[in-house]
Design a protein around this nucleic acid. Structure first.
Lengths: 147, 147
DNA sequence: TAATTATAGTTGTTTAAACAACTACAAAGT
DNA sequence: ACTTTGTAGTTGTTTAAACAACTATAATTA
């Protein structure tokens, strides 16, 4: 294929980190609110890990979400205030907090996934699986380049 | 092509608005800092518009960067404090601020574009133009779906 | 012309990201 | 055992995003 210099570096930057992620995050936040779910998109990213693996350390959450430790400390603070998670001490290693879903947090799983599914289905309407797979592979390359 | 359900909706969400944009933005901020450029990535997004079209309204900047008006007010505040832009009154419509680059702001253009180019070249090393074009078209679809 | 509506921008508040500096604890090396 | 190094988490500060509420001005329309 012979595609020559269609995008400047600035265009590429905007493509990879520009308005689409910004809009999608904003849009998800609005959908949560519309459905009466009192949750930020960032808080959801933490809950999403816990729905997969409950009872992990903050360090694990930081790595899994590519955030730094202070960011996770505050997200967990706020999720704890909302009553969705709780910190428990590790049995033997007193440095670790293990983060567990509360019953209330577990009850949120279905409603949250519902909103996320509707949101992403609307957002990706018209995209082929082929496009999505290409994006996935391309983003993996970018991730490896700068991680 | 027959690719069946490779990604869940949650995976798709993370793909479009997840860690890659987060990491790329963080990485660009670090590169600016390394090069002694006292500028946030968000401030750069405003300067980038002005390097293309100097002397536009804050409303224009808001639409061009998909930010809301308060966000632009504060970005312009901070760029003004840094001495890179100035607000001027519109001749006839007293509601409008027109935002102009200062000499100091204009002097930043080359150093900034240098950092952005290096950053994006490192980040996209190994991507084909074909992949980038597919991402561009796919993101346009997503943008139209949720804008 | 006066009232209404729309547009441009600002301010207040909450939540989050990034980074530096810090405390507490565990593990390794001597 | 003691010191050093590494790991886990917190706190302080600055910058930004989102949203609501607000002021000022312009455009519309009754």
């Amino acid at each position: 294929m012979n595609v020559t210099n269609l995008l400047t570096n600035e265009n590429k930057y905007n493509l990879l980190a520009g308005r689409v992620p910004l809009l999608l995050n904003r849009y998800l936040g609005q959908q949560f609110k519309n459905e009466g779910i009192n949750l930020s998109r960032e808080q959801w990213s933490i809950l999403a890990i816990l729905y997969h693996t409950d009872g992990v350390s903050q360090q694990f959450l930081a790595e899994a979400t590519s955030r730094d430790k202070p960011s996770v400390t505050r997200l967990v603070d706020n999720l704890e205030k909302l009553g969705f998670v709780e910190r428990r001490n590790h049995k033997t290693d007193r440095r670790l907090n293990l983060i567990f879903l509360t019953d209330s947090g577990k009850e949120m799983q279905d409603p949250i996934l519902n909103v996320v599914s509707k949101t992403i289905e609307k957002a990706t309407k018209g995209l082929t699986e082929e496009q999505i797979v290409i994006i996935r592979d391309a983003f993996q390359i970018v991730y490896d380049n700068i991680k």
